[in-house]
Design a protein around this nucleic acid. Sequence first.
DNA 1: TAAATATAGCATCTTGGCAGTCCTGTTTCA
DNA 2: TGAAACAGGACTGCCAAGATGCTATATTTA
Lengths: 149, 149
Amino acid sequence: MLTLTRKTEYAMIAVCHLAHAGHKVVSARDIAEAHGVPLPLLMNVLKRLNRTGHVHSVRGAKGGYVLAVPPEQFTLDGLIEAIEGPVHLVRCTNPAKNARRCTLTGPCPVRGSVRKVHDRLRDFLGAVTIADLAFGDRPDAGETPKVIA
Amino acid sequence: MLTLTRKTEYAMIAVCHLAHAGHKVVSARDIAEAHGVPLPLLMNVLKRLNRTGHVHSVRGAKGGYVLAVPPEQFTLDGLIEAIEGPVHLVRCTNPAKNARRCTLTGPCPVRGSVRKVHDRLRDFLGAVTIADLAFGDRPDAGETPKVIA
DNA sequence: TAAATATAGCATCTTGGCAGTCCTGTTTCA
DNA sequence: TGAAACAGGACTGCCAAGATGCTATATTTA
């Protein structure tokens, strides 16, 4: 259904929480309790974001997490990529070795056009930042994206 | 990974083929052979598009399919919805009774913002038409969509 | 120094949906 | 009447998402 995974949803919540906390260290438990997110899952997500360098971790008692990237530079596209892997609208935009490639044997009539839609989608997701998600209550900036070919 | 399903890929190909064929009736077999799409899967897809009213079917020998909607009015959003069900970036935008709802027990810090992103995404997909996919070789119309909050 | 807290890094298990196949029926043309 | 082509399903295998658990490591605090 063209849907983000739950892990990504949890990640959005966690990262926005951290954005609000500023430079304060916040434990996974605190975040989980604040929003009713299952703690073990949230920890999985935060561990992954730590490995990708999007958050810093502080171990031990009084430990927790801090954003490692300014919310204004932390894009939705980056977040999705960190959790789910890079966005690929269709298989043929995915150059990964182990990706299940397009199996068409004939010429693909939509290859070029779809590629453009895909690029626009990534531009779109790359233009949404965590700051937008966390603080964005600008009633309605921006307009409907123009279309492509 | 925020990816369209293969069925949707097949649907895009089929619909673009029909768009090129104009008012001529084209059989599923012809489409399948033209692009190397597995026939049984293509038939599943076309049957569904027929039920949703996006294509007309002609039964019997010499039968096949014709577009029921002008390519300029047939949006990518509509196609995805026909095949996969409506696009919902996150669960909380899905009002369906049987949808697995957001299970947050606490206040959701990103609800409103994500909703806006979701709306923009649908606007974006709703602005891409089959005509764009089938005939669109306008080298690069449109620009990167503005962002929202 | 011991206990408590919290993250790190795996491994494992379950489940749902996608992808693919098959079968039976109906319609139309030659 | 037979072949071609769509209609409408039921069914299965497989994989990724979702979820859980365990052990190790680091840090604070009493």
